[in-house]
């Protein structure tokens, strides 16, 4: 079991579950669901914000929140 913070850029994975319920609830409401393919497209210079793609949609997410996404 790896968190989203542990995979390399451009490596596609599948969302498993969310460890933090508040973050999970927000992710769900934005259509980021378990089972969806997820990929980190790039990171900012300081590496604290990720540019991710889930299905066809793009999101900016902080490292802290990304750590709550556990991959299958």
């Amino acid at each position: 079991m790896r968190a989203l913070t542990e995979i390399r850029e451009h490596e596609t994975a599948s969302i498993g579950y969310f460890t933090d319920p508040a973050v999970g609830a927000k992710l769900l409401s934005m259509g980021i669901l378990p089972g969806y393919p997820i990929v980190i497209l790039r990171k900012t210079l300081q590496g604290d914000t990720f540019y991710i793609k889930v299905g066809d949609n793009r999101f900016a997410i902080r490292k802290k929140e990304a750590a709550c996404i556990v991959l299958k």
Binding site: A22, L27, M30, T49, R58, F59, A60, I61, R62, E65
Partner: peptide, 11 residues
């Protein structure tokens, strides 16, 4: 308020 950043990047 929760400080979270999960922001949609629209097309």
């Amino acid at each position: 308020e929760n400080t979270m950043l999960i922001l949609e990047l629209p097309e």
